[in-house]
Every structure is written in structure tokens, then in C-alpha cells.
Design a protein around this nucleic acid. Structure first.
Length: 112
DNA sequence: AAGCTGACGACAA
DNA sequence: ATTGTCGCCAGCT
């Protein structure tokens, strides 16, 4: 049974969605929140990402804000780590701003 | 124990 | 168009 304590189902759900982000794609906090049924809890998604750091295989670098800006890059180890990870996946990122954001945007509500 | 903060987002003025 | 405030909920001081 639950060998480990539940980290609030909310966070778990966020992780589940984040893990399903395809390679070379990105999504936004609000999109994930919406898919969870908590459209106004975009903040919590970001907060969940904070806890995800060092937790599960949650590609937090694929989650950005609605503008396609790497708002959370500061939470990564390096200042450019997040951007480098994205570029490594073929995502064009300039000045922490994802290019063609709408093209690589992955909507968990629509595509999931 | 109570209050502030925080990886966002939408709306109001 | 720009700026400011509210909402959301959990974690941290």
C-alpha cells in the first residue's frame, strides 16, 4: 500500500502531466493547472515544480509561463541550464524566450 | 501558530 | 497599451 506519504494529490497530478510532455515540446503552468481542473492554480503548478526539483523525472525545463519565457530558469542549478536543456531538444530559445512557442506548445488538455 | 512568499494568469482601472 | 490587484493553495520563516 502507500509505502510513501501522499504529497498532496495536486502535486502528483502535476508531475504526471509534466512527465508526459513530449521531447522537444513545452507547455505552460496555466495549461497544466487547467488540465487538472484548477485553472487559477497556475502558481501551484510552479510551486509543484519547485518541489519536483530532485524528485522524479519531471522535465521542469519544459514548463514555462504562458508567454514562453523561462521564468523559472533561476531555480535551476545554472543560469542557462534550463535554456540549454531546451536547446538541446531542438527548442529555439533566445534570451530566455522560446521562439515559435505556439508551434512547440503542448497542450495537455487538448493533446492528452 | 500566524503570516508571508511564490516557477502564473486573468481581469480591472 | 500599461500597471496593479486578486485568486489559488501549499510550503516555509
Amino acid at each position: 500500500m502507500g509505502v510513501k506519504k501522499e504529497e498532496t494529490n495536486f502535486f502528483e497530478r502535476v508531475y504526471e502531466v509534466a512527465k508526459q510532455i513530449p521531447y522537444g515540446r513545452v507547455t505552460s503552468y496555466g495549461a497544466i493547472a487547467k488540465s487538472l481542473g484548477a485553472a487559477k492554480s497556475a502558481r501551484m503548478v510552479g510551486w509543484a515544480m519547485n518541489a519536483c526539483d530532485g524528485r522524479e523525472d519531471v522535465p521542469a525545463h519544459r514548463v514555462v509561463n504562458r508567454k514562453g519565457i523561462l521564468t523559472g530558469k533561476h531555480h535551476f542549478q545554472g543560469t542557462n541550464l534550463m535554456q540549454q536543456l531546451l536547446e538541446s531538444e531542438g527548442v529555439e530559445v533566445i534570451e530566455s524566450q522560446i521562439q515559435d512557442f505556439d508551434k512547440i506548445f503542448w497542450d495537455p488538455m487538448t493533446e492528452l
